[in-house]
């Protein structure tokens, strides 16, 4: 879990270095991640964890926080 969170944070920092994703805020509502960022993020996470996140799960609410993203990854088979 901790490793997953760290990996997600590292991926976010690589893709969107202009934002601080350690903040306890809703990343979507704060405008830190838009739909094209989601595409980049999903693509990187798929590659990093050797999974394919279900297209139906690629909705903004699943990317609103680090914990949401970790849950999304676990539900899509990461860390098994």
């Amino acid at each position: 879990m901790k490793n997953l969170k760290e990996e997600v944070l590292k991926t976010l920092n690589d893709i969107l270095p202009e934002h601080d994703f350690t903040l306890d805020v809703n990343f979507i509502k704060e405008g830190m991640i838009d739909s094209f960022d989601l595409v980049l993020l999903v693509s990187e996470l798929d590659k990093k964890f050797g999974i394919s996140i279900d297209g139906e799960n690629i909705v903004p609410e699943n990317f609103s926080s680090l914990n949401q993203m970790v849950e999304l990854l676990i539900n899509n088979g990461a860390g098994k």
Binding site: G55, E56, V59
Partner: peptide, 8 residues
């Protein structure tokens, strides 16, 4: 976003 979700 809507079209992507529709397709998926």
């Amino acid at each position: 976003d809507e079209v992507f979700m529709f397709a998926q």
